[in-house]
Every structure is written in structure tokens, then in C-alpha cells.
């Protein structure tokens, strides 16, 4: 694989992410990592469900009393939209349109950062209510589950930014196309996890 090889949209392969052996390996390896992540998050969800609303006797906090849906709704919409914008970015990657891809990735990063900001605001709000990390088994499980997701968002953002900056001058090639593709897969996976978080933690929490 020659990193200096220049491509035109016409010579750019149909599936640049798996066009090289290295790309193929990364592609399979990353999906396997996602399978492992599925089990990781399942363990976190399972623990959260077992410890939901559990605390020292007389604990004043419960999921039904704590969570507020409008903020969660906004966060959900933002993250879902960022999933679509990363699909657009990959669409342009496959068209070998580097500028458009960078632009869509930029939008994705902005949306992701907004999501993360809202999450920090939410956590901060709960902590001010007295619902700190060490408050109860419930709070530990809640912050660990949602916080792990937040850490994934942060990692995804850093990954996108690093890729965009590193490749800003040299454009798309066979060496970085798999990297962009995997970063966007990661982003979709983060969205998948959030779908379950808003359903299982927030919606089912509010119901009680």
C-alpha cells in the first residue's frame, strides 16, 4: 500500500475501508471489539437494573422523582442526528469527496460536543440536588452506566478530531479511509447504546 498514491473519484474503490489487507483486518477486529462492548454495556445495564432505586434506608431519591424527560429528549434528538451526519460523512468518503466528508464530520463533532455538554449539565444538576456518586448503590450504578457511555462519546469525539486534523492536508487515501470508516462505526455504536439508555434508564425510570 503506497500512502502517496493519489486517487480520483473514478479510481477510488467501491469499499475503500476493506480494499487493503490492513483495512480488512481492522474492519473485522473493530467489529469484534463492538461485540465485546455489547457485553460490557450489558453488564452495566444488568447491574443498573438490579440496583435501580436501591439505597440506604430512607433514601430520598428514586428514578421516577429524579429524571426529567425534556432534557433527555433533546439529548436523544441531538445524538440521533449526529448519527445521520456521520452517515453523510461516509457517503462522501465513498464518493472520494474529502472536503464534504470533513464538513459533515465537523457537524457530527459539534453535535456530539453539545450532547456531552448537556450530559455534564445534567450530572451537575443531580449532584447539586445531593445525588452524588457515593450517595447510594443506585447513584453508583446510574453514574457508572451513563458515565461510561459519556466516556465513549468523549473518546469518539477525540478520535474524529484527531483524524480530521491529522489528515486535513493530505486528503483521503487507502491508509486513512478505514480509520474514518471505523470511527463512524464507533459513533453509530454509541448511538445504539444511547437508544437503550434513554429507553431503559430514563423512560422506564420515569414510569417507576
Amino acid at each position: 500500500m503506497d500512502i502517496n498514491q493519489r486517487y480520483t473519484p473514478q479510481s477510488w474503490p467501491e469499499h475503500p475501508e476493506t480494499a487493503t489487507m490492513e483495512g480488512k483486518n481492522k474492519f473485522i477486529g473493530f467489529w469484534l471489539l463492538l461485540a465485546a462492548e455489547t457485553v460490557t454495556f450489558a453488564s452495566l445495564f444488568a447491574t443498573y437494573l438490579a440496583l435501580k432505586d436501591k439505597g440506604p434506608s430512607g433514601m430520598e431519591f428514586s428514578a421516577a422523582g429524579l429524571f426529567e424527560l425534556p432534557l433527555v429528549f433533546a439529548m436523544t434528538m441531538i445524538l440521533l442526528t449526529s448519527s445521520l451526519t456521520s452517515v453523510y460523512a461516509m457517503y462522501h468518503m465513498k464518493n472520494h469527496n474529502f472536503k464534504a466528508m470533513q464538513a459533515w464530520l465537523g457537524i457530527t463533532v459539534l453535535l456530539g460536543a453539545t450532547f456531552l455538554g448537556l450530559e455534564i449539565y445534567e450530572f451537575n444538576h443531580y449532584v447539586h440536588l445531593g445525588f452524588g456518586y457515593t450517595n447510594s448503590a443506585f447513584s453508583s450504578a446510574f453514574y457508572t452506566l451513563v458515565g461510561t457511555h459519556g466516556a465513549h462519546v468523549l473518546f469518539g469525539l477525540s478520535w474524529f478530531i484527531a483524524l480530521m486534523l491529522r489528515n486535513a492536508k493530505r486528503g483521503l487515501n487507502m491508509y486513512n479511509a478505514p480509520k474514518f470508516y471505523l470511527a463512524s462505526l464507533y459513533w453509530h455504536f454509541i448511538d445504539v447504546v444511547w437508544v437503550f439508555i434513554f429507553t431503559v434508564v430514563y423512560l422506564m425510570g420515569v414510569i417507576g
Binding site: L44, T47, K54, T134, S136, A137, A141, T144
Partner: peptide, 25 residues
């Protein structure tokens, strides 16, 4: 890994996944 993290958080950062008096299990 998740279980070990819980144990680390319980013992070192004051979480209570397994501390029964705090609602843990």
C-alpha cells in the same frame, strides 16, 4: 472487567455496588 471496575470503585472511590448497607448487592 466490569466487575473488577465495580470493585475498584467500591473500594477506592466510594461507590457502593456491593455494599449492602448502601443498597448494594
Amino acid at each position: 472487567t466490569v466487575g473488577l471496575f465495580f470493585m475498584v470503585f467500591d473500594r477506592l472511590f466510594g461507590a457502593s455496588f456491593f455494599a449492602v448497607e448502601m443498597g448494594g448487592n
